[in-house]
Each structure stands twice: as structure tokens, then as C-alpha cells.
Simulated scan of single mutants.
Amino acid sequence: MSVGSAGERVTIYDVADAAKVSAATASKALNGSGRMTAETRDRIKRIALELGFRPNSLARSLTRKRSFTVGLLTNDTYGRFTLPVMAGISEGLIDHGVSVFLCTVEDNPELARIHVDAMLDKQIDGIIATGKRIDKPLPVDLSELPVPVVYALNTGPQNGVTFVPDDRQGAREAVQHLLSQGRSRIAHVTGPREFGTVRERASACSQVLEHAPQARLLDTLFGSWSERWGHEAVAQLWSRAETPDGVFCGNDQIARGVIDALRERGVDVPRDVSVVGFDNWEIVAKETRPPLTTIDMNLKELGRQAGLALVRMVNREEVVRGVTKLPCSLIVRSS
């Protein structure tokens, strides 16, 4: 029985494939947790030994007194941001035999408290708090809990452990891409001014263009996170004598509305105007005509880093306190 090429580390996924079980089952068998027959547990252990599997040191350090479960608490009931974060958490923790228990709290403090109490009753090892808005905390105080807490795409205490996308860096990437396409008259169409991320991206956009030779910012328009606002913004911009040849949008829905409105006016994208979005919400970005160039916040990687940080906290290892900003990525398509 052999897996991979010489020198490659055998992972829990390799053990699971060889034993024809899920990665979670394989991990629990090796950790001595979970419910399964003694025969199944012994078979998985034998296969792991034959493959030369060596558990990650983080996984070994989790004692058998742990529940091998973490709670994910969110007010993002639609799941737009939470699902990719959760996928990253699960991917990062599966090799450590840790499962994720998801609870949605909306913006209801009483419901949030009930879910937190239920998590603690289940003896979870820790909680990851996430949501739909970085600058708005969840409606429950998590600062005095008996388990460690990590914040991902959500506001945490000053001395907490928080992971967020680097919105300023992402906005700079977007504007610099427009400049690289030869665009010189840039408009920024974005969401509500009260959002911290909106102000961060708008500030970065303005800063880049202040230092760009032969290019300038025509206007920054604040509105809603919707395609309808994208249409309305184009109507405003194209009612003026000077129109943009590049539009940086605060999210992909706005960008899709902008592109549709330009098409209705006979303005070709990207020949006449280049458009860049933000989020890389693939269900929107890939189906836009033309497919949308956008900024990916790398939420899956953000979730993975948050999950691994929580494991370290559970193991009482050192972690970086404060806010860790993870880089965004430019996804070039056709707009």
C-alpha cells in the first residue's frame, strides 16, 4: 500500500481514502474519540501505521478530555460570508480531528445567549465568532467565557485574536489594475458610508489616485449593496459632461448593476469602460456579462487561519493578539 510520491507527508485524507471512511472518522479513530466498532478503529490504526501516517503535533497535543468540537457563531443568516469562512475552518481543523458546530443568531441578543449556553453545555473547546459586517460585533458578550474565542470577519476586543481581510490593500489592487489598463478617469461606486469597510476602500482608492500621474478620481458615490444602486450610479455618472473610463465597485452586485446599465447605454465593457468589483462572489462574478474582474477577500484562508489559531489557544500556546489582516487577491476575468 503506497500513497503519493517519496518524501510527501501522509495526511489524514490519505488514511481515510485507504480505509474507505471519512476524514473525520479516520481522525477520531486515531484520537480515540467518536463512536465506532473496535474492529473499525483497529483497522484504521493499522492502515495509518502501514502508510506511515504521523499526526500533526497540534492534533497530538489536544488531550482526550477535549470534545474535539468548536462552535461557529454568526449573524450572517444568508451565509454569503460565513459559508466560505466555515469551509476554511473545517479544512484547517479536519486534520486535527476537530468538528465545527454552527449556530446563527441573527441580531437577537437573547437567541445569541441561548446558543452560547448550548455550545458550552456541549463542552466545546472554543468559539469562532464571525458575521456579515466587520465593524459590527455580534449581539452577545463573549469576553468572559471559560473557553477561548477567535474573531473572523467580525469585531473582537482590543486584546483578542481577530482575523479580517485587508480592505485597503484589496482596494489598492483594484485601482492599480484599472490604471494598468490605461484608465485615467476613475469613479468609485460603493455601499453605505456607515460601513467601516466602505470607508477603508474609498480612502485607499482616493489615496492611490492622488499619486497616479495622468489619472484622477472623478467621484465616489455611496449607496446600497445592490445591482439597482449600480444602475442608478451609472445614470448619475453618465448625466455629466465627463464620464469615467474605469469604475471600481464596492461589491460584485453593484458591479453587475453597473455593467448591465452600461450595456443598456451602448457602452462596451471593457473596450470603453473597465469595471472591477469586490468580493469574488462567484455566483455573481462568473455569470456577469462579461465575467467580472474582482477582488477576492480569501475568506476560506481567513477561516483556516482562525481555526488553527483557536487550536493553539486550546493548547495554551502563544498566538498573535490584536487584528491580523490577511491579503486580498485580484481575480482577473474579462471586465
Rank of each mutant, 00 (worst) to 15 (best):
S329L: 12
I114C: 11
L30T: 08
N159C: 04
A129L: 03
V3D: 04
L58G: 14
M1Q: 13
I295A: 03
P146R: 09
V267I: 09
L111D: 05
P84Y: 09
S224K: 14
E39K: 14
A24M: 13
V275R: 03
T293Q: 05
L237K: 01
P213E: 15
R216W: 10
R316E: 14
A309I: 01
G131I: 02
A118Q: 15
R133G: 02
A24F: 08
L292E: 01
T74H: 03
R271M: 12
E8L: 08
G246H: 00
V314Q: 06
G52C: 07
R9K: 14
L73A: 03
V140N: 06
L209Y: 13
V105T: 11
R312L: 04
M36K: 08
P157R: 08
V319M: 07
G97P: 04
T74F: 06
R199M: 14
L73G: 03
G322V: 04
V100P: 04
A215E: 11
E200K: 14
Q305M: 12
Q181I: 03
R64S: 14
R216E: 13
R60I: 14
V21D: 02
I331R: 08
V98C: 07
A59P: 10
N298A: 07
T40D: 04
I283R: 12
R240S: 12
K286Q: 15
L326D: 03
L178T: 07
N159W: 06
W281N: 05
N154E: 08
S180V: 09
A6N: 15
A306Y: 01
G34Q: 02
S143I: 03
V284Y: 01
V284R: 00
S329Q: 15
R183Y: 10
I134T: 09
Q176M: 09
V164N: 11
L209W: 13
T190H: 01
L145T: 04
R216Q: 13
P290E: 02
I44F: 10
F248G: 01
C103E: 13
G126D: 02
A204C: 05
G307S: 02
D95K: 15
L58D: 14
R312N: 11
V189D: 03
D260C: 04
H177L: 08
V269K: 00
L308A: 09
T11H: 07
I254C: 00
L308T: 10
S33R: 15
T190S: 05
D279Y: 01
E264C: 01
I331L: 07
R312V: 07
L72D: 00
